[in-house]
Structures are given as C-alpha cells and as structure tokens.
C-alpha cells in the first residue's frame, strides 16, 4: 500500500504520509500553522486551539488531527486567522501579561504570536485575576500570572523527566497548574536541569537569576518572527 498521498492547504497541494498530523505535514512542506501547546518533543493534546484549521468545512486542531488522502485544509484565511487572534487575545486578558518588564519578552511564544498577528491591544476587557508567585524553589520561579494552561510542563515532567511535578487542577476560569508537593514548587523533586524548566512557552516557569542576560536585539524573536524557521524549509 502506498502510504503517501496529497492534501491541499490553502489551495496548495502538498505531500503527506499516513500517520502524520496536519501540523507535521504542513511543517515538512514549509507551511507554518501557529501553535502554543504543541511542542516537537511532546505528545500533542490539542488544548490551546491556536492551531485550529478548517478541514473540509469543519474546525480541527492541526496538532492532533491525522492527515487523510485528499483533505482540503484552510489555514491562512481571514476567518481562521480571526479565530486564532481571538484565542490569543483571550490568553492575554485571562492572565497578567506585562510584556514591558517580563524577562521572557523577546523569547516568549505568546508575545511573538501576538506580534505575528499584529495584535497591539486586546479586544476583550482585562480580567486582572489574582495569581500567585511561587519563589519557594531555590533555582526556579513559578509565576502563575503568566500561565496560559498549555500543559507543556505537565507533559514534559511526565514524558521527558520521568517525574510528575505538575498537574492541571480546578475547572474553567479557575483551572490552574498545581504542583505535586505539600504546597509549593520547593516541596517537589523538580530540578533546574529538568526539561519542564525550559519548555514553558511564556514566562511562567523561569530559571532564577538569569533574566535579561540576553540583550535586546539578540533574543529569539528579535531576529525573525515566530514560524520563520518552519517557513524557511521551503521559502
């Protein structure tokens, strides 16, 4: 059986293989589909919905939807882009994201996406929720103000570090990342060398005492917009 076939993204025919997700196939073809919870080293869970594409008329998360022969996918259309923009906007207002002094600025995937989408101010009212800052770990700071509930840390701790430091707890608006300890990160077996420390797309989990060491101009997204690395595969 031939396991390669064609799918169409925004009118462009590309090659896909059985077992790939839409995101995998698009990445290989140099087509960028924006994403936040997805990470190449982690199993996809389709939680952030930023990678939503329209497949044969229905919205689907590209990071989890397997490709099928002849699929017709909309990625870069006004309706899809607006939908993603709305999701990103909601992430900004549901947390306390102060890019102007955040040490993740320039290296933050949420901020980089906002720039890519041309978001200068959110369209929804700020919620200004009360969030905790957990400084109990000697080498890692957990600032819940900036969490977007992507659960990368939950998966990285389990899948990559063989630990179980983080979990999602609570429901709806009150859902948050909890730690598997008496009460604080300092009670857990987390180590600064864990993959879970550096996998956070925003400034929620950060290494202590190294903020701002990379000067402005040399940070990841100072050089090129997010997604450029994928688009450069087939410029």
């Amino acid at each position: 059986m031939n396991d390669t076939f064609k799918i169409t993204i925004d009118g462009k025919e590309i090659e896909a293989r059985q077992g790939q997700t839409i995101m995998d196939a698009a990445d290989a073809a140099g087509i960028y589909i924006p994403r936040l919870c997805s990470h190449p080293d982690l199993k996809p869970i389709g939680s952030c919905r930023v990678c939503t594409v329209v497949v044969d008329g229905r919205p689907q998360a590209a990071c989890v939807k397997p490709v099928m022969d002849g699929m017709v996918i909309e990625n870069d259309t006004p309706a899809v882009l607006q939908h993603r923009r709305n999701i990103i906007d909601m992430m900004f207002v549901e947390g306390n994201h102060f890019c102007m002094f955040c040490e993740k600025s320039g290296n933050c995937e949420l901020q980089a996406l906002a720039y890519r989408f041309g978001i200068t101010a959110p369209q929804y009212p700020f919620q200004f929720p009360e969030k905790e800052v957990d400084g109990s770990h000697p080498d890692i700071l957990l600032d819940h103000n900036r969490c977007i509930m992507c659960a990368r840390c939950v998966r990285a701790s389990q899948e990559l570090d063989g630990k179980n430091v983080f979990q999602s707890i609570g429901r709806g608006f009150h859902r948050k990342i909890g730690v598997n300890g008496e009460k604080e990160l300092g009670d857990t077996d987390m180590a600064v060398s864990d993959r879970a420390t550096e996998i956070c797309p925003v400034g929620c989990i950060i290494k202590k005492r190294v903020g701002y060491e990379v000067p402005i101009g040399q940070r990841i997204y100072d050089k090129a917009p997010i997604g450029s690395d994928i688009e450069e595969v087939h410029p």
């Binding site: 102007m100 002094f101 040490e103 800052v133 400084g135 700071l141 202590k208 005492r209 903020g211 701002y212």
Partner: peptide, 14 residues
C-alpha cells in the same frame, strides 16, 4: 512587592 529582585531594574524604570 513579591516580584523577583532581578526584574526590578526593568520593572521600576516604568
């Protein structure tokens, strides 16, 4: 208050 100390030079200049 409550912010990490290394953030203060960037924060407080605002």
């Amino acid at each position: 208050q409550g912010r990490p100390y290394w953030e203060i030079p960037v924060l407080v200049q605002r």
